[in-house]
Amino acid sequence: MTTTEDIEAMITGMAGGDRNAFENLYAATSAKLFGVCLRVLNNRAEAEDALQDAFVKIWRNADRYKVNGLSPMTWLITVTRNLCIDRIRARKATSGDMDEVAALEDSAPGPEALAIAASDRARIVGCMAGLDPDKAGAVRRAYLEGETYQELAEVYGVPLNTIRTWLRRSLQKLRECLSQ
């Protein structure tokens, strides 16, 4: 069982240039991070490229991890997710074709097989369930599919000049629920 402390120690090792720590971190986390890449990008070749970018970035930035205040898995997943979102947006910018992404349905919950101690992160799931389905869907689309306000306005048929207020109110509700 790989614990949060183990992951943290690996990142600290990497910050000091320890390649074994990198190998250990890859062994412990690459499957989860690859799963995230596949979920966000829905394309195997792109997911492999994104995973590569993510581990290179994690290796180079390991020394910056400590000051960020994030738990280690959150940092790793956030780096990976952001690189995937950048790819999605670059893809849209070149092809102008958003149907591919818009057509994606949220994947059904799968088994959480990763042997890493999880925090109580699952509370977001409960709090999202308390939002209107459209609004929870919009938050999910932004986070997991990189959709912009413009795209969300189109998907939900809300004018662009009100989508932001619409979503911010939901975020505020979410924060209230998460803070309880």
Binding site: G35, T74, P109, A113
Partner: peptide, 21 residues
């Protein structure tokens, strides 16, 4: 960041191809 990352909890791990390492 900590809260939103919970949206990835239900994403199943998938072993990347060995050559990728």
């Amino acid at each position: 960041a900590e809260d939103f990352v919970g949206m990835t909890d239900d994403i199943a791990p998938v072993a990347p191809p060995a050559a990728l390492l």
